[in-house]
C-alpha cells in the first residue's frame, strides 16, 4: 500500500530544514491549559502525525501552527516561501447557499476548468465538478477538500482528521491517496488523527500529544513508549505491524527527536482516564 520514499522530488528539495516548527508553545483558553510547552517540527517530504486522546489539544496545535491562533508563549517559525494546503476537519455548507464543486474549488483563486478537472481526477472524483457541494457524501467531500488543498501546489499539506465522516472502507483509501500524493509532489504532510492503525503505518514521525508532548519519534518507537501505551492501552502493535513497511534507510535525519524520550518520564497527572500506572 505504501511506496518507497520519494526519489525525484527529494532530489529537488535538498533543504532539510523544517517547513514549520513550534518552539515551547503554550496556550491557555478560558483559564485552561491547552498546550503546555509544545515543541514540534515538520520536515519536508515527511509525514508527521499528531495523535492524542480527545481534548489533547491536537486541533489547537494545528491552529497555532497555521497562524490562526497566537500562542500565549513560544514561537512558531515557517520556512520562507511555505505554501500551505489546508484541509479542515469538517465542512458543512448551508443548503441555502447554492454552490457547485467547481465554484467551491475556485472560491479563493480562479483556475481553468481543465486544471480543476485534473485535480479532481487525481483524487478520484472528476464527475463531481458540477455537482452541488451539499450533495456530496462524506468521502466525496474529503476528496474535494483534498483537491482544493492541492490547488496552489503546496509544499506542506495540513490535514485535520482527513478521514472524518468517511466509512471504514473509505478511510484506508483516503490515507493511501494522501500518501500517493505526497510521494508524487514531494510535499510535507502534517496530519492530526486518532486513527492510530491507519495513520501510524504511513507516518515518518509521530507526535503523541496530551497538552504536552508525551513522546515523539518514528511510529514503532512511539508505540513502544510507556506513555503512549498508557494513553492508548487498547492499541496492539500487531495491528500496526501489518501495515509496516521498510523505511529505515531514508529517515536517519530524524535522529535528534529521539532524545525527547528521556524527558517524558515526568509524572504529571494528565487527561481523563489517565492516572493509573499500567
Amino acid at each position: 500500500m505504501i511506496r518507497k520514499s520519494p526519489s525525484q522530488p527529494a532530489a529537488a528539495e535538498i533543504d532539510a530544514s523544517p517547513l514549520l516548527a513550534a518552539r515551547d508553545v503554550s496556550l491557555e483558553r478560558a483559564g485552561r491549559v491547552i498546550l503546555d510547552q509544545v515543541s514540534v517540527q515538520v520536515r519536508p517530504a515527511e509525514v508527521t502525525v499528531v495523535i492524542g486522546p480527545n481534548g489533547a489539544g491536537k486541533t489547537s496545535l494545528l491552529r497555532v501552527l497555521l497562524g490562526l491562533w497566537k500562542p500565549g508563549r513560544g514561537r512558531v517559525q515557517r520556512r520562507r516561501g511555505l505554501r500551505i494546503g489546508y484541509m479542515p476537519q469538517r465542512l458543512q455548507i448551508e443548503p441555502v447557499l447554492p454552490l457547485s464543486v467547481q465554484r467551491f474549488l475556485t472560491l479563493r483563486q480562479r483556475a481553468p476548468e481543465a486544471v480543476l478537472r485534473e485535480r479532481l481526477e487525481r483524487v478520484g472524483v472528476p464527475h463531481l465538478l458540477h455537482k452541488p457541494v451539499q450533495s456530496l457524501s462524506g468521502g466525496e467531500m474529503q476528496r474535494v477538500l483534498l483537491a482544493r488543498a492541492l490547488l496552489n501546489r503546496p509544499n506542506l499539506l495540513v490535514l485535520d482528521e482527513p478521514a472524518q465522516g468517511v466509512d471504514i472502507a473509505g478511510q484506508g483509501e483516503v490515507f493511501k491517496l494522501i500518501d500517493d500524493i505526497r510521494h508524487e509532489t514531494g510535499c510535507g504532510v502534517l496530519m492530526v488523527s486518532h486513527d492510530l492503525h491507519l495513520v501510524m503505518a504511513g507516518a515518518d514521525a509521530v507526535i503523541c500529544l496530551n497538552q504536552h508532548v508525551c513522546c515523539t519519534g518514528r511510529p514503532e518507537e512511539v508505540s513502544r513508549h510507556p506513555e503512549y501505551q498508557r494513553l492508548f492501552p487498547e492499541s496492539d502493535m500487531q495491528g500496526i505491524g501489518v501495515y509496516r513497511h521498510d523505511h529505515d534507510h531514508v529517515h536517519d535525519v530524524a535522529g535528534e527527536v529521539h532524545e525527547h524520550h528521556a524527558g517524558c518520564a515526568h509524572g504529571r497527572p494528565s487527561g481523563p482516564g489517565g492516572g493509573g500506572s499500567r
Partner: peptide, 19 residues
C-alpha cells in the same frame, strides 16, 4: 463579494488562504 463568500463557506480555510 469573493472574500465574503470564502469566509461564509469556511472561516478558517479562508484565513489560511489569506483572506
Amino acid at each position: 463579494w469573493r472574500p465574503l463568500l470564502a469566509l461564509t463557506v469556511h472561516e478558517e480555510l479562508a484565513q489560511v488562504e489569506g483572506v
